[in-house]
Design a protein around this nucleic acid. Structure first.
Length: 150
DNA sequence: GCCAACGTTGGC
DNA sequence: GCCAACGTTGGC
């Protein structure tokens, strides 16, 4: 079982949205490196939900992967902002996963706290200039983060 | 709102 | 296949 971190802007889709929906397809990732991580995810993996582009940014909850290796439906939807006209339906370019909400943390684990406790090479999300919206999290680091829940 | 970092596109 | 131009991300 592996741990991941997935970013979303709360204005677009925050953990409150997931709380209402209970589960969702994590669509709209249009970066090959992030997609490759999505392809590696397996049912039962856990993922931290990270709010980006907000003050303060940080981890707000935990999700579970409940379906893996799905073709992202938004790539074929001309009305979607994630529509990719050059993706071939016979060989879709973008895959993703379905997630369900496990829990919302009572207090956010801020980016600042992550930076104070981990080094850049141990946790991708705190790397300067890192823009990947899907990244792996090492077991030991995941355990430490989970132990901070109050 | 700014802008550094970085990914993608497209002309050559 | 190079690389300049451009677009996007996301912390601040």
């Amino acid at each position: 079982m592996n741990y991941w971190l997935m970013k979303s802007e709360p204005i677009t889709y925050g953990i409150g949205h997931l709380e209402k929906e209970k589960q969702c397809i994590w669509d709209g990732v249009r970066n090959y490196q992030a997609r490759n991580f999505l392809r590696m995810m397996q049912v039962g993996d856990l993922a931290f939900f990270y709010h980006s582009n907000i003050q303060p940014p940080g981890i707000v909850g935990l999700m579970k992967i409940i379906e893996s290796n799905l073709d992202d439906p938004s790539q074929f939807d001309p009305n979607s902002r994630y529509y990719d006209p050059s993706s071939n339906p016979q060989n879709p370019r973008w895959q993703t996963v379905r997630v369900e909400l496990v829990e919302i943390f009572s207090t956010m684990i801020t980016l600042e706290k992550l930076k104070q406790n981990f080094t850049q090479d141990k946790l991708m999300v705190i790397k300067k200039g890192n823009r990947l919206s899907v990244t792996p999290v090492e077991q030991e680091i995941a355990q430490v983060i989970l132990s901070w829940r109050s």
